[in-house]
């Protein structure tokens, strides 16, 4: 479904921030991209929907190079969710969610029905929320609205850049579980970027580990735990277990 071939990004004369990345996500797959800050996750994700253009290599969607067509129509076929959400502050929640269908020229009643459907899907049922402006929502509600906006034009592909990063742990787990359910229900192909190994283990079909712009290992959570490719991956996957142990000890001594 999504194929990255030798994808490379270099800014000016500096060392490339993404270096020869080869990655394949099958249709319906939930792929999590994990790595340290600055490892090139956002850059990689942005090259898929052409928010950033690669220096080298290419991105194929269903076998077609995304740079063959025009960037705008590529973007309208994919949902994108940011950590900072990026809801338009001058539009209501309903207007925000309906934006891509509107750009695609859907009739107003069809957009209205779709917005209604999506609010239910992301569990923002409170009828009056649709008329509010983003500033009048909680962080969790805002992230749900951002998710609904990304899903509005029925994309087959979802790109998510630390979508739950700014939320408190409780809401974060709840929303992550909700999204995984939506992913399954709608048969989406998702690439999700995170820092959080626990989240990666809980959500991913496969996990791709990045460091300094390079892909270190791509594997299912199970394989990753059993056979980490190197010390760095090993340390990374140990983090959740170490924390769980620390927590258990802390609970006992308390």
């Amino acid at each position: 479904m999504i194929q990255l071939e030798n994808l490379t990004k270099q800014y000016g004369g500096r060392a490339p921030v993404v270096r020869g990345v080869n990655l394949h996500a099958a249709a319906g797959e939930f792929l999590v991209l994990i790595g340290e800050s600055g490892s090139g996750k956002t850059t990689t994700l942005n090259m898929i929907n052409r928010l950033t253009e690669p220096t080298n290599g290419r991105v194929l969607i269903g076998g077609e190079d995304v740079r063959a067509g025009d960037a705008v129509s590529v973007r309208r076929q994919m949902g994108f969710v940011f950590q900072e959400v990026g809801l338009f502050p001058h539009m209501t929640v309903a207007e925000n969610i309906g934006i891509t269908p509107r750009l695609l020229g859907w009739p107003a009643d069809r957009i209205g029905a779709r917005v209604h459907e999506l609010l239910a899907l992301v569990r923002l049922e409170n009828a009056e929320i649709a008329k509010r402006f983003p500033a009048q929502l909680s962080g969790g509600q805002r992230q749900r609205a951002g998710l609904a906006r990304a899903l509005a034009a029925r994309p087959k592909i979802m790109l998510m850049d630390e979508p739950f990063g700014a939320l408190d742990a409780l809401i974060r787990d709840e929303l992550a579980a909700d999204y995984r359910a939506i992913h399954n229900k709608l048969g989406l192909t998702t690439i999700l970027v995170t820092h959080d190994m626990t989240e990666a283990f809980l959500l991913a079909d496969r996990i791709a580990v990045m460091r300094d712009g390079e892909l270190l290992q791509v594997a299912t959570p199970k394989e990753l735990a059993a056979e980490p490719a190197n010390d760095f991956v090993k340390r990374l996957i140990e983090i959740p277990r170490q924390r769980a142990e620390k927590l258990a000890r802390a609970m006992q001594s308390a």
């Binding site: 705008v72 129509s73 994108f80 940011f82 959400v85 990026g86 750009l103 034009a153």
Partner: peptide
């Protein structure tokens, strides 16, 4: 800049981003 990036990500043309956002 996050808002402008969001405008592009939702599939706005530069002109639409200018006039709508």
């Amino acid at each position: 800049p996050a808002i402008i990036r969001a405008a592009r990500a939702t599939g706005m043309t530069p002109w639409q981003s200018l006039t709508m956002v």
